[in-house]
């Protein structure tokens, strides 16, 4: 479809306005983070800069031991995202590609599970986590509570619903002949799922991986309720620590929060290519 010149000019203007609106808050925070607190205290945030420095970033990085918390986030986010995608896609495959009797009920069960507010399940979950023992090499506390594994498991469980929902929707759009042809060739369920269906789901998987990474990485509810040792918490909840530490220094807190946003941005940029390649690959099948 070739849009007319007028409408594409209008679209361009609209998008530029939106771009500015969307960027302003972030750029303003960056501007504040680049200015010393003494200066903004005296002249306010909205004023011309007397000096722009990276001091706030440097101070935030060194004083908060951020590297350590980044690693914690990595230990939690990576396994949780991979595990969620694997489990959700295998479940979605069965309920959407095989004529399975309970598929609607199961789908509703999973999707509905995703509707539950985290707060509703936290109390029994906390008790459950205190009751599940883990070997000491997995958890210092010897419990599911206050362990990385505990955090990974709840993130997986909590995100499964949405992923199953999206993936099963996506898989339904794949032609049924795909499986039928493979069955004729004698391929088992596993082969059809792993070799045949999953590669076709790349766009959906890439989109979900991006979303999951940001959600799990940014989660702080599970982290603050299920991890009691400050040092074991991921970077986003450690930010709260920093916020407590420099209550009056908004500039430095803004700097720290901006640093903490970098990994999700990297994941997005990295997966965006995958994502777009995957998307165009998806479009050919109609």
């Amino acid at each position: 479809m070739k849009p007319s010149r007028l409408s594409s000019a209008a679209a361009q203007v609209f998008m530029v306005v939106m771009l500015v609106l969307w960027l302003t808050p972030v750029v303003f925070a960056l501007y504040v983070a680049l200015r010393p607190i003494a200066e903004t205290n005296e002249h306010g945030y909205v004023s011309l800069p007397r000096s722009l420095t990276l001091d706030n970033f440097r101070a935030a990085w060194t004083q908060s031991d951020m590297w350590h918390f980044f690693l914690n986030s990595l230990y939690i986010t990576v396994p949780a995202v991979l595990l969620t995608l694997f489990l959700a896609s295998s479940f979605a495959y069965v309920v959407s590609r095989l004529r399975f009797r309970w598929n609607i009920a199961l789908l509703i069960l999973f999707t509905a599970g995703n509707l539950l507010p985290q707060q509703v399940i936290i109390t029994p979950l906390f008790r459950l986590y205190l009751a599940i023992p883990l070997p000491h090499w997995l958890s210092e506390s010897g419990l599911m509570y206050n362990s990385y594994l505990g955090l990974i498991v709840i993130n997986v469980a909590f995100q499964l619903g949405f992923c199953v929902f999206v993936l099963s929707n996506y898989m339904k759009t794949l032609p049924a002949e795909l499986d039928e042809a493979a069955i004729v060739d004698g391929a088992g369920v596993w082969t059809r799922y792993w070799r045949l269906t999953l590669p076709l789901c790349r766009p959906a998987l890439a989109a979900l991986a991006t979303l999951l990474t940001t959600w799990i990485y940014n989660d702080f509810f599970w982290a603050i309720t299920l991890i009691s040792t400050g040092d074991k918490r991921p970077v986003t909840s450690a930010l709260a620590n920093l916020q407590g530490q420099f209550v009056a220094n908004q500039n430095m807190i803004a700097a720290a929060a901006l640093i903490a946003a970098i990994p999700t941005l990297i994941v997005y940029v990295a997966l965006q290519k995958q994502f777009i390649a995957g998307l165009s690959l998806g479009s050919t099948k109609g």
């Binding site: 603050i224 309720t225 009691s228 400050g230 040092d231 620590n241 920093l242 916020q243 530490q245």
Partner: peptide, 12 residues
């Protein structure tokens, strides 16, 4: 020392 920020500590 296991430091946790004010608000989080109190809430939990």
């Amino acid at each position: 020392v296991n430091t946790v920020d004010h608000n989080t500590f109190q809430n939990n």
